[in-house]
């Protein structure tokens, strides 16, 4: 702060409400710890120091859905789990977002044809905002998915109906 100290008079920043609120929201997306299968290990890797999801303000993994904004569905969803996912999603406070991480959560993945208990895509249970390809996706892919979600939040409107979405 030394560079800016005593350089400026008191200032007024003008912006619009949407931008400000969206900026607040997208900079502090709290995900829920919700690892299901293999992708969960990559999600843990993203949380750790090498990839560091904290850079995007999304590092505060919450154990309770009531404190979370984002559900990263990391792994295969089967029928037994689907009902629980629905309930957990319903417990999250709005605005809430969901990322389908990996091929299984997107559309059944390798278990599409013969997986008799596998739900062919978590979007049959909860609405999904961002799909990430890969089996499992690399940590960078998850970070890109998060950035896409941030773009989507930035484009949304708080007081109006959204004009365009990403």
């Amino acid at each position: 702060m030394g560079l800016f100290e005593k350089q400026f008079e008191d200032n007024v920043l003008t912006t619009n409400v949407d931008w400000l609120l969206n900026w607040c929201r997208l900079s502090s997306i709290w995900p829920m710890t919700f690892g299901l299968a293999c992708c969960a290990i990559e999600m843990m890797a993203v949380g750790c120091a090498h990839h560091d999801i904290d850079r995007f303000g999304a590092g505060a993994f919450r154990a309770s859905p009531r404190q979370a904004d984002l559900m990263i569905v990391a792994g295969t969803v089967n029928f037994k789990m689907a009902e629980r996912i629905k309930r957990l999603y319903d417990q999250m406070p709005s605005p809430k977002y969901a990322i389908a991480m990996g091929a299984c959560a997107t559309g059944g993945g390798p278990y599409y044809k013969y997986g008799y208990t596998v739900v062919k895509g978590v979007d049959r249970v909860v609405p999904v905002d961002v799909y990430i390809a890969g089996c499992p996706p690399r940590p960078e892919a998850l970070l890109e998915g998060l950035m896409k979600l941030q773009e989507k939040i930035q484009a949304s409107s708080v007081i109006r109906k959204p004009i365009h979405t990403v």
Binding site: A37, C38, G75, N78, K80, M81, Y114, G115, Y116
Partner: peptide, 26 residues
């Protein structure tokens, strides 16, 4: 148990020998 049952054994008897290898990873 069973919240992640992914039918690995059924797949094992549905796909060819070499095709099953990627499922063993998982």
């Amino acid at each position: 148990l069973g919240y992640l049952h992914r039918c690995a054994e059924k797949i094992g008897e549905s796909v060819e020998w070499l095709q099953y290898l990627p499922y063993t990873d998982r």
